[in-house]
Amino acid sequence: MMTLSLMKKPLAGFVLFSILLLLLPFTVTNDYYINVLIIIGINSIIVIGLDLLVGYTGQISLGHAAFYGLGAYITGILSARWAWPPIGGLLISLVMVGILAFLIGIPTLKLHGHYLAMATLGLGIIVFIFFQELDFLTGGPSGLVGIAPMSLFGIPFDSDLSYYYLVSAFLLATLLLSINVVRSRVGRALRAIHGSEVAASVLGVNISRFKVGIFVLSALYAVTAGWLYAHYITFISPSSFGFMFSIKLITMVVIGSLGSLWGAIFGAALLTSLPEFLVVFENYETSVFGLILILVMIFMPRGLMRGLEDLIKRMIDLGRQNLKERSPTS
């Protein structure tokens, strides 16, 4: 029930979540888990953006890893080959990918359903092939080494703890922006598009503009995440940004709840940490992802978090009914 009330008052939820992020490292005993938390934070940023696109607007993307990868590679190349500072890499990659997503988004988001899924998947694979083949820039399949560690305005983020707080700050910023977008005229237009494109357009919603807009925004989130990733790991290779990662991202959105920002973070946290905590899981990871996708879609098509919520509501209703039925006799 707490999640319920939090979703109604997202700003209260936001404050609580900030405090949670602030305190989380103190509950963690092993430094390795800070690593995991950082990756969770990075993934959450992408998944929040993807949820705006898939969950709120109803437009699927099976190629989001490409934007993540572009963010990582552009800053990585600028850093490793021309010793650019990270902030320059971020700005350049935001501008470049923003323009790219805009240009690609216009024809792509005219497509619906399966066609959109296949087109975004194709885009993801094309970008992946470029990561592999442009080896004079990207280092090819074996990867790009020598990316400078993060440093912003003279402040180095060289410890895991400092990096954790950096990622958290970006996560909170993304989250706040997204909460604002969702609870605005834009957010309503996006959900209206999801509900019925025809109805939205007769009310004056410029479908194409809003679809492309949210596509670009979610691409920019992914770019930011890629940037954080590249300067954290300092080594990137194409395999981190392939088709499977796009699928993982979609899984996170779906598990978390389509159309719930908290759900998106929950999904990212769950699926990022699961393999870390269950080492045995490793060989089964792919199969388990597949199985989870199928089961959630069959039994809780609104996502795990909302599914559980519905379940709780139903149980409460059932309890009330039982009470009512009993009360006349008692």
């Binding site: 099976l62 359903g113 699928i247 792919t286 199969s287 597949g290 199985l291 989870i292 879609m297």
Partner: peptide
Amino acid sequence: IIITIGASIF
């Protein structure tokens, strides 16, 4: 879409 993708990776 998600179900058939799930099936495929499973």
